[in-house]
Structure formats: structure tokens, C-alpha cells
Design a binder for these strands. Sequence first.
DNA 1: TCTGGGGTCCTAGGACCC
DNA 2: TCTGGGGTCCTAGGACCC
Length: 424
Amino acid sequence: MFGLADVNSFYASCEALFRPDLRGKPIVVLSNNDGCVIARSAGAKALGIKMGVPWFQVKIQDYPEKVYVFSSNYALYHSLSQRVMSALEEMTPKVEPYSIDEMFLDLTGIDGCEDFEHFGRRLRSHVLATTGLIVGCGLGPTKTLSKSAQWASKEWKQFHGVLALTPQNPKRTETLLASQPVEEIWGVGRRIGKRLNLMGIETALQLARVNPALIRKNFSVVLERTVRELNGESCIPLEEMPPAKQQIVCSRSFGERITSKVSMQQALCQYATRAAEKLRGENQNCRHIGVFIRTSPHAQGEVFYGNSAGEKLAIPTQDTRDIIEAAMRLLDCIWLEGRRYMKAGITLDDFTPNGVNQLNLFDERQPRRNSAQLMKILDDINHSGLGNVWFAGQGINTEWKMKRDMLSPGWTTCWADIPKARVL
DNA sequence: TCTGGGGTCCTAGGACCC
DNA sequence: TCTGGGGTCCTAGGACCC
């Protein structure tokens, strides 16, 4: 048996956690640059504020109630996610962090000892007691079914956020799947949902009844696995140890459009630095580096321009200097003067773990001397919380940096921001 | 008239997830 | 004026090998 724990309205709940005055109020969290709505509290959903809409299109002054708006505060969300994770691990030994607000649980040991829904409710109150956050919990014989159960636990209020599907109760599984539209199934998105609809398949139950071989022929093995999982055949295992990353991306929209090459170089230099830090954090070296830049696809009266370029290095690296150098060369290949750029990013690919770098026998280029030591010192200083060092190419006080006008304090990540309690 | 068989590797693009 | 960021996996097709 698998479980799926999902924190209700995660980002919005995090914002309310240290602001008791906001409990039950409409809360909205915006994407980077305060661009789109990416999370809403129950109150905000009730007002009809939609997920993913551009913030400037939302007229909050028209709502009957005050809406509390926040820029996204990933340091806060990440630290609270860790707390939820620890709380879950206290009750189930095997937990797979699936996303910042969702964790899969291995319930093998619970089988036969405790009623699954009873266990789910205990889990829920334990997480609430230790973190102040409320999780929904779906349980089922496969990951896909536990996702469906979790979906239904929100849909049907009488379950109070905990629902178990078991082989002992096939009737309940059938009823649930018959009421779940295909595009709500884990692994079925809008595209495949539409195609299935055209074939007359509209509910999860209908999909479950299709011959898997037929699905494989017309779609792919991925959807075939989904069909099998809906029938209780577990095809997707729990992964306790996250597999090594295969790619690192660092990209961002700008607070203000970039028009000068120097500014673009600064931005890419910063993203390259960040990407290289992540790479070292994974104990990996990369061999392929890619850069992309683009103007806004929404701008009226402007011709869209987007381009990317990539380069394969002679020797895999994790040295920030190599990555910045490559990024600057790549920018030279794709930079076009006279455009208003909205976004840029860098990708690192083709990894080899530390310590297995094979040099080319005839290659004259040698790796930099003392690279590892220098990068370690750099990372140590920047992680110390005492100061920062960076490459001059990043510039200072850059006008294009991200807009985060409504950022909440780092309640759990910054000493100066620790909440203060006062006894009256 | 007739033009093999079996394989690997790489890339781009499409789909999905949160 | 203003529209997010970071990932994964699979497939098809081309280049190349013997």
C-alpha cells in the first residue's frame, strides 16, 4: 500500500502560519516577479480567484473582502516542507519527497495492524501538531490510486481529507474512478485527456477498462503504466533516495526588460554562478552548457525573438569560471541588438560524478589547478551567513533583478526575522 | 525483376508533473 | 506597463557502425 500526503494550499498556508491574524482570510501567493497567481487559500478560492492568472488582470479592489497578497518566499516554503517531511518520517519509515508539498509513503508495515483510514487520520493530526499545517491523505495499492484517493478526499468533504482505497473494497474504488474525469488522473494532462475524450473515454473507470496493449500502441508505455496502476497493479515504485539529477536549469524573468548586452551578461553570469553552485551541491560535473534568451511572447507590436545555443566542453567541469566563460561565448552567438529581453536562462547537462573524470590522452587542455579548493572556499563563505563573494561579471544593484514587492519575512530561515511572542 | 539486417548513439520535440 | 520556474521520461528520426 502507498500513501500520498499533500499539504492543503501549501504556499498560502505557509504565509498564514506565523500570521494568526490571516487565518481563514483570502490569501494569494504570486510567482516570481509577482507575475501570476500560483497559490490561493480556501478563502481566495471561494472569491473566485483563479490559478495561474496574471496578477495584473486580477482586480482585487473589486472583491468584497480584503485579499492578502504575497510574493513567493521559497526559503520559507522549503524549510516548512522539511518540517512536514520529518513529521511524516516519524510515523512511516519510508517517505519519498515528490514535490515541495507532496510526499509518497510506503505503508507496507501498516497492513493488517491498523485500519488505513485510522492511520491516515493519526498521520494528519501528527503533522498538524508538529508543524501547524494540514495535510490531505490518499491511500491505495498503487501510487496512481493513492493520488486518485487524495483527489477524492478533497472533492468529497465527508471524508475530512483522508480516504483509503483497498482491494478489500473494490466497490469504493469503482465508484471513485467512475466519478473522476480522465484529465484529473495522475499522468494524464490536457493533451492526452482530449485525445481520450475523442475516443469516448471520459472517466478514470473507463480508462481502467481499456486493454493496456491498445493504449501502448496508440499512446505510450507511460499511459499503459497508468492504466495498469488504476487496476491495482503497481508499476511505479517508491523512491526513497532521489535519483541523481540529469539536468540543472537556472532561469528567470526580469523585473525590467533588458536591452543592453552588459545587463544580459550580468544576468547570465548570476544564473551561471547559481547553476554551478547547485552542480557542486550534487557532486557532479557537467559537460554540456546551454544558454537561452527570449523577448516577451505577449508584447504587442514587437517581433518575438527567442534563441538558444549549446556547447560541449572538452573536459567536464564544476568550476564556476568555466561555466561563466562558456555562457558568455554562447551569448555572443545568439545576442541580437535592439530587442527588449524578458527572460534568460542557463542549463547544465551531461553529468559525470566527482572523481571519475577521464582526461583525453591527447588533449592539451588541462583542468584548472586548485579548482576544487577554490570553489569549496567560495561555497563555504557564501553558506556561512557571514558574507558573500561573487564574480565581478554579475554586477551590483542591477535594475533587472526580480520583483518581489510583497515578500513576507524569513520566519524560519533568518535570525532577524524570528517571530516574537509577547505576553499581555 | 531485383537493392540487407541489425545495431548504437544523439538530438529535438512532445508529453507530463508540481 | 504588467503573463513563473524547474524538472522527468519517452519517441521518432537521422547519422553512423559492421
